[in-house]
Nucleic acid binder design. Structure first.
Lengths: 146, 146
DNA sequence: TGCATATATTTGAAAAATTCACATTATAAA
DNA sequence: TTTATAATGTGAATTTTTCAAATATATGCA
């Protein structure tokens, strides 16, 4: 299965196991639940949101573990840390190329396509490892309410 | 004079006075020195860097004033707050359109042109207020050293 | 020039987010 | 099952940013 796309629910856990195994990431319940939450909830949650959601089923879960897991999965290319223009840290379990729009009214983060946005060529001699595009403004619903 | 370009040293203070006055920003020595530092030092400094640099001539300067000033000048469109992909807050006294490249080795931030990077059209009904592009990687010098 | 008023600065404390050290516990491989 | 290695959880520490309140300053007007 190609990575970066929405998974059928029944496949999720097996997919996570495969991805972790192929990257030599140890399988722990905490890591699986964090990654699963990100794959099944495309809401660009904060660390706090993930923590609160998973604490319900695992009261001993610690926030440090979320930070550690995000770090591990980010380095493995399975998770992206998105920083909104206002500095909030949001998590994304999908690492295919896309931009992020942050609504300053409701706080929601929306994905958008980066077609037409070419990587600049004025950086000769530089080695680009990440390329991020983000926008701030009002989303459709919030714009209409005004 | 068009805004957003490098100023001759002799013009800087008068330019700052004009820009502040036309935006009803009170002229205080602290604000002038912060903005002047950003215009004369295109190094995308941190708040800490600005604070340390200006403290030399004004020992009673407080970091809160830097934060307040950055806030005021950002809202007035004279300063940009740049957040590197790694989350560091950097300041930029130039608000014309350009992207930012962060070197993860030396920490320097480089400007690059955004020509060819079109604002996406897949956001119909949204109101875009800011549009930021940033990259992470190795700058030329750091790449060669490796 | 001096006064009045609104605004800015400073200080120290507080809050929020993230990292750290270390003891405990769990995973994976033999 | 055993063992070595690695991950988790705890609480404290660090870092960055914000806040409230007292003091000081800038600006407009007499």
């Amino acid at each position: 299965m190609e990575e970066g796309y929405i998974l059928k629910e029944v496949d999720v856990v097996q997919t996570i196991i495969n991805r972790f195994s192929s990257r030599d990431i140890r399988l722990t319940p905490q890591r699986i639940s964090v990654y699963r939450f990100l794959l099944e909830n495309r809401i660009h949650p904060t660390v706090e949101t993930v923590y609160n959601a998973l604490k319900v089923d695992n009261p001993s879960l610690s926030k440090t573990t979320i930070y550690n897991t995000v770090d591990t999965l980010t380095k493995a290319g399975l998770v992206r840390v998105v920083r909104t223009g206002e500095g909030e840290v949001r998590l994304d379990g999908y690492t295919n190329s896309h931009g992020h729009f942050y609504c300053r009214e409701c706080g929601e983060v929306f994905d958008f396509s980066l077609e037409g946005c070419l990587v600049p060529d004025s950086l000769n001699g530089f080695e680009m490892e990440e390329f991020d595009v983000h926008a701030i403004g009002l989303c459709g619903p919030c714009k209409q309410k005004q």
